Simulated assay, not measured.
Amino acid sequence: MPEETLARVEAALLEWREWLEYLAGSFETYPLHPADIEDQRTLWERAARNVILQVVDRTGCGSGWHGHCHQVLTWFLNRWGVAPDVAAGLVDEAIGGRFHSWTGPDTVIVDAVAEQLALSLQPADDRTRADAPTQDHLQRWLAIRESVPWQEIPDSGTDGPVVPLRDGAAEDIRAFDGAIDPARAQGLRSALELLRTDAARGARLDFALLSSWQQHLLGAPQPPRFRPSPAFAKGGRERYRNSFAVHQRSGRW
C-alpha cells in the first residue's frame, strides 16, 4: 500500500538522521587535532575503537556491516582534518579485509585495526609539505630502541626464563595475519617455530640464519637474498632503507 510504503520510508529516514546525529556527537567526544597527532595517538586509537564498536552495536554485524564501518571511520577521520581520499585509503589499509558479514570482530581485531589506523596518521603539516625530507623509519626504530634504558629495568627476581601467561607472538599471528591471509599466517608460524628452535640451540645470528627464517615465512624454494634497495610500506608513507646499510653504519653487524 502507498501509505504503508511512505510510513516505512519516513521511519527509515528518521532512523538514518538519528544515527548521523548520534555519530556527529560521538565524534566530538575526543577533541582531536591533526597537528598534534604525535602526542595524541592514544586518543586517536581510543576514538577509532569506539567508532568501530558503535557501528558493531548499531548494525548487529549483519550483511555488509563492514562497508558501513569503513564509511563511518572515513567520516571520523575527515571530521578531524584528514582529506576524504586519504582517509578512505588509511581505513582500507587498517581494516585489511579482517571484517566480514554476519561475523562480529573479536576484541583483538578491533584493537589491532584501531591501533594501526592511529599509527598510520601523519601530522597535518607532514601531509602538506612536499619539500619535507624523506624519513627512514628503520633508522627511527633503531634510535628509539637505543633510547630505552634497558639496564635500568629490574629483573623479575626469579632464576631462569620468565614463563608468559600467553604466547603473544603466536596470538598476534593468529588474530592479525590469520584474519587477512591464512597462508601468510602459516608461514609466520613456521618461521617462529624455527626461530625458537635456533635460539634454543644457541645458533649464531647472521644473515644466513635470518634468510632461512624468511624462506619459511615466504614459503620460498630457497633462502631469499636481502634487498639492495629501500622498501616502502603503507602506500609509500613509510620508507625503510637497505637493512644491511643501516646495520653496517650502526656497527651492529
Rank of each mutant, 00 (worst) to 15 (best):
M1C: 10
M1P: 08
V72P: 00
E193C: 04
I173N: 06
H100P: 03
T59G: 01
G64Q: 14
R174N: 04
W80A: 01
L119M: 10
T5H: 06
R227V: 05
P230D: 00
Q135V: 15
E45K: 15
G219A: 09
T59E: 01
S250W: 13
Q135D: 05
T158N: 06
P223Y: 10
G104L: 09
A12S: 05
R41N: 07
R129D: 10
M1K: 09
T128I: 11
R127S: 10
P228Q: 00
G60C: 00
E45F: 14
G236M: 02
R239S: 01
L73Q: 03
V110M: 08
D85C: 06
E93A: 12
P164R: 02
A200S: 08
L192N: 09
I180K: 15
H216E: 11
G81A: 02
R79Y: 08
D155W: 01
T158W: 09
T59L: 01
V113Y: 02
C61S: 10
R46H: 09
P161W: 12
P31V: 03
W141K: 13
D57Q: 15
A175K: 04
E152G: 14
A175E: 08
E152F: 15
F244H: 15
D198Y: 14
P133G: 04
F76W: 10
W150N: 03
R129E: 08
R17A: 13
Y30N: 13
P224W: 12
D92W: 15
T74V: 13
P105A: 10
L53Y: 09
N242W: 05
V55G: 00
D167T: 00
L13T: 11
R189A: 09
P133M: 03
D131F: 14
